[in-house]
Computed example of a mutant assay.
Amino acid sequence: MMGRMQEETHNPTIAVLLPCYNEEITIGKVVRDFRAALPSADIYVYDNNSTDRTAEIATAEGAIVRKEPRQGKGNVIRAMFEEIDADVYVMADGDDTYPADAAPAMVAKVLEGYDMVIGDRLSSTYFQENKRPFHNFGNRLVRGSINHLFNANVRDIMTGYRAFSFTYVKTYPVLSRGFEVETEMTIHSLDKNVRLYEMPIQYRDRPAGSVSKLNTVGDGIRVMSTIFRLIREYKPLPFFSIVGGIVGLVGIGFLISVMIDFWNTGLVLRFPTLIVSVLLIMVGLLLIVAGIILDVLAKKDRKQYLVDKNEFAFLLRHER
Rank of each mutant, 00 (worst) to 15 (best):
residue 70 R to Y: 05
residue 240 F to Y: 14
residue 101 D to I: 15
residue 31 V to Q: 07
residue 214 L to C: 11
residue 14 I to K: 05
residue 90 V to E: 00
residue 193 N to H: 15
residue 246 I to R: 03
residue 284 G to Q: 11
residue 272 P to E: 12
residue 285 L to C: 12
residue 266 G to M: 07
residue 239 F to R: 07
residue 161 Y to E: 04
residue 191 D to G: 01
residue 281 I to A: 07
residue 193 N to V: 06
residue 125 T to G: 13
residue 152 A to P: 08
residue 252 I to S: 09
residue 162 R to Y: 06
residue 159 T to Q: 03
residue 303 K to G: 10
residue 148 H to Y: 11
residue 71 Q to N: 13
residue 280 L to Q: 06
residue 289 V to D: 07
residue 257 S to P: 00
residue 298 A to M: 05
residue 160 G to P: 03
residue 32 R to F: 03
residue 241 S to H: 08
residue 307 V to D: 07
residue 177 R to T: 09
residue 276 V to F: 09
residue 104 P to Q: 10
residue 169 V to C: 10
residue 55 A to E: 01
residue 238 P to F: 11
residue 53 R to T: 06
residue 219 D to Y: 04
residue 181 V to G: 00
residue 2 M to K: 10
residue 290 A to C: 09
residue 13 T to P: 03
residue 123 S to V: 03
residue 96 D to I: 05
residue 212 S to T: 15
residue 80 M to Q: 13
residue 201 I to N: 08
residue 150 F to S: 01
residue 59 T to A: 12
residue 221 I to H: 11
residue 93 D to M: 02
residue 313 A to I: 06
residue 33 D to T: 12
residue 37 A to W: 09
residue 299 K to T: 01
residue 225 S to W: 00
residue 16 V to P: 04
residue 207 P to T: 05
residue 191 D to L: 04
residue 161 Y to C: 10
residue 36 A to V: 01
residue 152 A to R: 03
residue 304 Q to I: 10
residue 116 M to F: 01
residue 49 N to R: 10
residue 83 E to Q: 13
residue 305 Y to A: 04
residue 176 S to C: 11
residue 41 A to M: 12
residue 192 K to W: 06
residue 32 R to H: 14
residue 155 R to W: 09
residue 315 L to F: 14
residue 125 T to R: 10
residue 167 T to W: 09
residue 316 L to R: 12
residue 93 D to H: 12
residue 215 N to T: 10
residue 291 G to E: 06
residue 142 V to C: 02
residue 250 V to I: 15
residue 32 R to S: 13
residue 230 L to Y: 00
residue 2 M to D: 11
residue 79 A to Y: 02
residue 308 D to H: 09
residue 173 P to K: 02
residue 104 P to W: 09
residue 181 V to K: 06
residue 155 R to G: 04
residue 90 V to C: 09
residue 184 E to K: 10
residue 4 R to T: 14
residue 290 A to M: 14
residue 247 V to W: 03
residue 91 M to Q: 14
residue 211 V to N: 08
residue 22 N to T: 08
residue 194 V to M: 02
